[in-house]
Simulated scan of single mutants.
Amino acid sequence: MKLLLVEDDAAMAQALRLALERRGFEVDHCGDGAQALARLRHTPPDAALLDLTLPGMDGLQVLHRLRAEHIAVPVLVLTARGAVGDRVLGLNAGADDYLSKPFDLDELEARVRALLRRRHGREAEAPIACGPLRLDRESGAFQLGDALLELPPREHALLKALIARPGHAVPKEKLFRVVFPMEEHIQFEAIEVVAYRLRKKLAGAGVSLITLRGLGYLLRADTAPLP
């Protein structure tokens, strides 16, 4: 599930991006309205998280132009403007939902998933699978065959990021940010230790964690060929 985060506060954008990636989303970011409109036109995501206070073209202008061009990307407005009048303006401009800052990350995730359900039906909440391995989107639990797969938090975060794109290489740099968010004291090579431990737990179970030198890691069913 691809999200476009439109937020001009760099620190908040970084924190939100890391938090959402840990929850299984693929997040792109831009910091101004004109750039956001261009991306929504040419590479529309599954949903957009849009701040209203942006340099140049503000969020309301982005919404007006987006809907005038009949671009139907679901938009969740994130803003410090909490007054009822501002919420009404955002919804009338074409927003699908509205969340005032500060907000709870669990509520943000729930609202994003609700937007996706409304757009795609229940398909958005179907389990992600790779061979015998399945991830329940609602609970975040992994099941391997008929058994629950219990993992430490870092291995869980790594596997969640990999199963979001089964059969595709995910760069080590991106995985490091997901597994070790805001932990600048951790050495980059630590991601290899987490991957090694996870690989051992998946061995012989019908799904493999593959190292692709120079590209990153890839999760695939043992019956699937390498790309």
Results as ranks from 00 to 15, higher is better:
residue 47 A to P: 04
residue 5 L to E: 00
residue 89 L to A: 14
residue 122 R to L: 12
residue 42 H to E: 15
residue 186 I to Y: 07
residue 96 D to A: 11
residue 3 L to V: 09
residue 211 T to S: 15
residue 156 H to M: 05
residue 159 L to E: 06
residue 21 E to L: 05
residue 103 F to Q: 06
residue 175 L to F: 09
residue 51 D to P: 01
residue 1 M to S: 15
residue 62 V to I: 11
residue 52 L to P: 09
residue 209 L to H: 03
residue 131 G to C: 07
residue 78 L to C: 01
residue 176 F to D: 07
residue 47 A to E: 03
residue 96 D to F: 10
residue 29 H to P: 01
residue 149 L to G: 00
residue 209 L to T: 08
residue 198 L to W: 07
residue 187 Q to P: 10
residue 167 G to K: 01
residue 185 H to C: 02
residue 17 R to Q: 15
residue 25 F to V: 09
residue 128 I to T: 12
residue 85 G to E: 15
residue 47 A to T: 05
residue 57 M to Y: 05
residue 70 H to G: 06
residue 68 A to P: 03
residue 223 T to N: 04
residue 95 A to D: 00
residue 23 R to P: 02
residue 97 D to L: 08
residue 39 R to E: 13
residue 39 R to F: 12
residue 137 R to Y: 00
residue 210 I to D: 09
residue 171 P to T: 04
residue 201 K to I: 06
residue 164 A to T: 09
residue 65 R to A: 14
residue 105 L to D: 00
residue 144 L to K: 02
residue 206 G to Q: 02
residue 104 D to H: 03
residue 194 V to Y: 07
residue 173 E to I: 10
residue 26 E to D: 11
residue 67 R to T: 11
residue 149 L to E: 12
residue 216 G to L: 06
residue 81 R to Y: 13
residue 215 L to T: 13
residue 148 L to T: 08
residue 177 R to S: 13
residue 182 M to N: 13
residue 145 G to K: 03
residue 129 A to Q: 14
residue 58 D to W: 00
residue 167 G to Q: 01
residue 224 A to P: 02
residue 169 A to Q: 04
residue 166 P to F: 07
residue 49 L to G: 08
residue 14 Q to R: 13
residue 31 G to W: 08
